[in-house]
Design a protein around this nucleic acid. Sequence first.
DNA 1: TCTTCCTCTGAATCTTGGC
DNA 2: GGCCAAGATTCAGAGGAAG
Lengths: 359, 359
Amino acid sequence: MGVTPDTIILGDCIESLRKLPDRSVDLVFADPPYNLQLGGDLLRPDNSKVDAVDDEWDQFESFEAYDKFTRAWLAECRRVLKDDGAIWVIGSYHNIFRVGTALQDAGFWVLNDIIWRKSNPMPNFKGTRFTNAHETLIWASKSRGARRYTFNYDAMKMANDELQMRSDWTLPLCTGEERLKDETGAKAHPTQKPEALLHRVILASTKPGDIILDPFFGTGTTGAAARRLGRRYIGLERDPGYAKLAKERIAKVVPISPEDLDVMGSKRAEPRVPFGQIVEAGLLRPGDTLYCPKGERAARVRADGSLVIGEMAGSIHKVGAMVQSAPACNGWTYWHFKSDKGLAPIDVLRAKVRSQMAA
Amino acid sequence: MGVTPDTIILGDCIESLRKLPDRSVDLVFADPPYNLQLGGDLLRPDNSKVDAVDDEWDQFESFEAYDKFTRAWLAECRRVLKDDGAIWVIGSYHNIFRVGTALQDAGFWVLNDIIWRKSNPMPNFKGTRFTNAHETLIWASKSRGARRYTFNYDAMKMANDELQMRSDWTLPLCTGEERLKDETGAKAHPTQKPEALLHRVILASTKPGDIILDPFFGTGTTGAAARRLGRRYIGLERDPGYAKLAKERIAKVVPISPEDLDVMGSKRAEPRVPFGQIVEAGLLRPGDTLYCPKGERAARVRADGSLVIGEMAGSIHKVGAMVQSAPACNGWTYWHFKSDKGLAPIDVLRAKVRSQMAA
DNA sequence: TCTTCCTCTGAATCTTGGC
DNA sequence: GGCCAAGATTCAGAGGAAG
């Protein structure tokens, strides 16, 4: 009946979708072709050439053709989705309006549109438009009536240092170590998404063990994030080369332990600056240990940026206060991590993230 | 024939649009109904009110009706727009996908989607979704071929601390003093936009004196910003109460003086000075030597303003490109002459000629 | 080892005027 | 319309070389 999770299915996405059973997945994450319509080459002011996305899979004859394709895969995704499931689709102004309209027409119910603000976007080299510094994600439930979609409100609030998570997320592009390379050292895939983005999507809208379907799997960012966070995945990909890279990549991921996945389930109150983002950015990992200034007390980091010591759990500030029996505590200066130079306050990690966001 | 600018036309927006002449406005700014589906107003093209909807069949009906209405006013706006004109539309996830699709289908060409990040959004009180902290604007030219839309790149860059203006704009909501109140002290209009938002839109995409059409004028934020910035407006509004408030509001606006409106101009707009004119003016002499930025390459100036290096000869741009084996080169910034302060780009000589011409 | 400088690159619908 | 030539145009971050 069902499909074995944690697999990559090779082949055309719509054909593969047709073989999946009704109401069998908890979440769909889709990064479809954007249908960019580029002119000729684009040169930077230093005369170097921009490595454009001109792959065959992004070419469509017309908006009609793109719509037809979009509506076909969306209809199948909706069929495959459980009634309390949800979908995420990411896109740019080239395609996102058409995707959003198709979603609504298919009966999905939009819950939010989310802006991925890029801290380091490519500039507009010719000075002709505003720097295209964001992409848009649409989050939608299967239907208007479906009230029981998963939303881990408190985990998101915790990850945003006790302020409600907003609809705009500031995150850097996928570059450096994280970016998969081919044998020649060139980027393996032209549009690899940062795992931090998928981390937040998955933490917000799934439960541990949930099955996440990605119909445009590429090099498997969704699979990597799913495995790391104790979720399962089904990836559809038509390019065997990408599928192979994805498989190898996911195999290397170390899932975080179940107790670290146990995110906050109740409310608290205190102020400013997202510790959860330190975890998303990979500067600390769920399961890492933090220490008080003298090192005699240790707390464990969880996936949503909450800390645990014994029975105590909460934000960095709250837990810091509790272990000292103090009315309040600045967690940023109280908690330390082990660096190669000994214990260092986590505030230095915040500074790192801030410098990324300042852009 | 034409329409007197700086007026508010009372009546149905589509009917009023039909009376405006072809190609008569430079910019359209539209803040249409968002189709929130909260039991609020949704208008059919004939202006009859759609009943509140709460089942799936009616939902489909309402999207269709919304699309029909949207496509009707967009088609009229496009007709009324000059060929080098542009349009802005603002919306939220409830309607923006449908508006964007309709824009593309009508032949408009999307230039950017802009995110208005609200610094002080209303929280999500029930904790069921992400805080809806932004709205989306779409900026589009009249057609794909239209390259000559107005974009004051340098003014925008200046306004952003000498960095390219990005596609995400952080601005507060319209509150406090700025928010228009009715006799009872309640807000006069439910969706009044901040004038700062219109300020940026108008400064970015119009020239002084341009005519800006707003088909959903409301309490006249577009008119107020247009007047303040030395632009003209045409407002369409069917509610006489709003129109009256708008008129009073705009009358109080003190326009910025013309010299203060003189924003950073584009270099492209400056008068052309052929390099030969530098020689004619005696600022360089035939036989003089020009150097590349680091001084290791030298070229000789000839009487007609061409350069020579060995076998190579041609314009300052051509020779600059050739010596670097680059596809292109701006000779004005590449070539330097020996001044009493060391090497200086020949662009300073061009500036000298330009200032003489202006005098 | 620690700075400083240089190079490279990222989903990009990326020029304009005259002949 | 097409073609050609003038000439305008980039930000953040990673990584490696140079000092």
